[in-house]
Design a protein around this nucleic acid. Structure first.
Length: 299
DNA sequence: CGTCTTTGACCCGCGC
DNA sequence: GCGCGGGTCAAAGACG
């Protein structure tokens, strides 16, 4: 991890904007600048995504839930995962029996109460081009699960913040259409600062050369060496210390989602999907900040 | 020995 | 009601 620099010293391509662009200002973004990065390349555009903005919006609203594809794979239950037989059926049943005997009522109750209703927590998702799945973001995470994703050869990993008083989770998976891209979804808000002693500061997202935010989703391309994404809580500020960095709009990491009314208003103002496509059309816009009530009901 | 990952089982929501 | 799929649990193992 690189040494943390003071926010003022961070390089930013649009200093007159103090780290954040308004919606109209986004329109003035140099398209040539965007073309420097693979993720923004028009050659990789999905024509359907451009021609069907309404349909795309539906996709946004559904993400990150796996779409219910009409095609099916030849697996039943958990017998086959990624075309591999995990273990003989008898062995499985044996294990199941032993586990059932070990299980207590207390465990069941804990599981029931700990399970919250789906999509209660605000979520923030972004894509990063990276060879590494789990990207460093300044917090410590404990992996608590991994699941095969339907119709995808790449598994989804589940992480939880190691801080006992913090219930932030994140999911990491490879983008189905481009395995070089990692999709990271944060859920919840950190109740503490990052362990690197930078109060109210975090590295987020990790290895970055480019970031683009459209009011619903954060898009990034990554470098192989970590660079710093620095934000200041409550100040609507964004800094990326890469000379080619680009920030299309205000962006607040998940821990700030519920705490900044200013940002919330901005989200509502910039959520126009079609306009965003006109600004920076690319194929990765299925990603969305999903079910974040704040973005839909600004205060 | 403490911490983290792995992984099969289990729970639950949801669509049919 | 049933089955599927996503999310979570927790024992066992790996690792430093």
């Amino acid at each position: 991890m690189e040494e943390v620099a003071a926010a003022d010293s961070l390089r930013f391509p649009f200093p007159e904007h103090k780290g954040y662009l308004g919606f109209m200002e986004m329109l003035d973004v140099d398209q040539e600048f965007l073309s420097q990065f693979d993720v923004f390349s028009t050659s990789s555009l999905s024509s359907s995504l451009i021609s069907n903005p309404i349909e795309n919006l539906e996709i946004w609203n559904q993400w990150p839930t796996t779409p219910n594809y009409s095609s099916s794979i030849s697996s039943t239950s958990s017998e086959i995962v990624n075309d591999e037989v995990i273990e003989p059926k008898l062995e499985r049943e044996k294990k199941q029996h032993s586990r059932q005997t070990l299980k207590t009522d207390k465990q069941s109750k804990t599981r029931k109460t700990s399970r919250k209703k789906k999509d209660q927590e605000p979520r923030f998702a972004f894509m990063t081009k990276s060879e590494v799945d789990h990207l460093e973001d300044g917090y410590r995470w404990r992996k608590y699960g991994q699941k095969a994703v339907k119709n995808s050869p790449y598994p989804r990993s589940y992480y939880r913040c190691t801080n006992v008083a913090c219930n932030v989770k994140k999911r990491v998976e490879r983008y189905l259409k481009d395995s070089s891209i990692v999709v990271t979804t944060y859920e919840g808000q950190h109740t503490h600062s990052s362990p690197n002693n930078m109060a109210r500061t975090t590295f987020f997202p990790p290895p970055i050369s480019t970031a683009l935010y459209n009011g619903s989703a954060m898009f990034t391309t990554a470098t192989t060496t970590p660079s710093l994404f620095h934000y200041q809580n409550g100040h609507n500020s964004n800094f990326i210390n890469h000379p080619k960095s680009f920030v299309a709009s205000s962006f607040h990491p998940p821990c700030d989602v519920a705490s900044s009314n200013h940002a919330n208003q901005f989200f509502a103002a910039t959520i126009n999907h079609r306009l965003f496509q006109d600004i920076a059309p690319f194929q990765y816009n299925e990603l969305a900040w999903r079910d974040c009530s704040i973005s839909q009901n600004p205060t």
